[in-house]
Design a protein around this nucleic acid. Structure first.
Lengths: 210, 210
DNA sequence: TCGCAACTGGACTGTCAAGTCCATTATTCG
DNA sequence: CGAATAATGGACTTGACAGTCCAGTTGCGA
């Protein structure tokens, strides 16, 4: 019996350009809605309407809602890590790190404090409810962290950061501060908690400088 | 027309002891389920089953599901602020603060990193979806912060903290670190991010010491 | 150009959840 | 005691939503 595994669209078929575009439209619409309303607060019909697709299209590309949500996590992870990779690419100093943080703060200010982190809100909602989602999100955070680690290592190589400093740990605290600050900003509708938290994290890095 | 406002049970009636107990059972069951499954992931029937009540009882004490969710927020806020008020009551030194942090970490370790913060997960889910919920949660965080501020002020009064230090800002960063650390712990199922984040926050306080 | 497979439209089903309603049973208090 | 009101049981309505099904169309490759 040659591969009768009933393989689903999302794997092992041969999508055309049109099909790939449709799939992309669905995931993007889903990601935006889920960002604003949460996964369980977003219905497939919402997504169909926002992406101008029909039910059969959604089920052609995804096994079920969970499968679509996994694709959403993947997209948001790509977006966040991509954005920060670009912002951090040239960062190799405390000054550069400060500018990166200022960029994050400016974005939050533009949103009036609301919104929160796309990865953070997904993690909070799904981490304890779906093991596969949790793993994907953990991986996403790890990838994000790795870009910070790269910047911190560059600082160390330049001699700004002490040789015994641990870039991995510093990156973890940076993201924790960012996520916590964003959550408080989202709740209070003020950017100040984020500013304070990121300020603390950067000071923490400064303490590990020579 | 004397006060025909169609006032609901949760206000302006006179509940008996039995009624108050029933109401309490409902809210507690709801709080536990919502903590594990989220608000939109928890149905009234789940809550009815867990609290051994019927639909008419739920609607006797709460106008609708939103009203019940507000009561849940209130309960969780009371719980969290109560717990931390007790833990922080006698704290007036960096040492005491460290012990408090160790207690938080131990609790998280006992849960295998999972769970997250009851207020944090509610905030992440509801802050952008219900203005009244957002306000209640902001108030809850503020009350929580105030207990930390009290401890920090005690440190300042004892002369351990610099006089120009800002207890309010330090408390904000402490909670941001805690929430961010908890989120990462929940996602990675490891306690380490929380340890690192709280370590950073306490070091941050230490930097403001004389 | 022919045939197969990718793609799409949309009706239909079954389930589950929120909220309504009314009848019945306690409890309080004059 | 005996109204008035609190408390409860549970059936019922209404709507929304995930997922199924099939008929029809488009497009690619031999």
């Amino acid at each position: 019996m040659p591969r009768q595994k009933k393989a689903h669209a999302s794997e092992s078929r041969k999508p055309t350009a049109r099909g790939a575009a449709t799939r992309g439209r669905i995931v993007e619409a889903a990601a935006d809605l889920v960002y604003r309303q949460g996964a369980s607060g977003t219905s497939l019909e919402d997504i169909m309407a926002a992406s101008a697709t029909s039910k059969s299209q959604v089920y052609h590309y995804f096994a079920d809602k969970d499968g679509l949500m996994r694709a959403v996590i993947e997209l948001q992870t790509r977006r966040v890590t991509g954005d920060h990779a670009a912002m951090l690419k040239t960062v190799d100093s405390l000054q550069g790190l400060r500018r990166w943080a200022d960029g994050v703060i400016a974005m939050n200010k533009a949103a009036g404090g609301a919104g929160g982190c796309p990865l953070g809100s997904l993690a909070s909602e799904l981490a304890d409810r779906s093991e596969s989602a949790r793993e994907m999100l953990a991986l996403g955070f790890a990838r994000w962290e790795s870009h910070l680690v790269t910047a911190l290592r560059a600082m160390r190589d330049r001699g700004e950061l002490k040789r015994e400093a641990r870039p991995e740990d510093l990156a973890t605290t940076m993201i924790a501060a960012l996520e916590g600050g964003l959550l408080l900003a989202q709740t209070t509708h003020e950017t100040r908690p984020l500013e304070l938290a990121l300020g603390m994290a950067i000071e923490h890095v400064a303490r590990a400088c020579v």
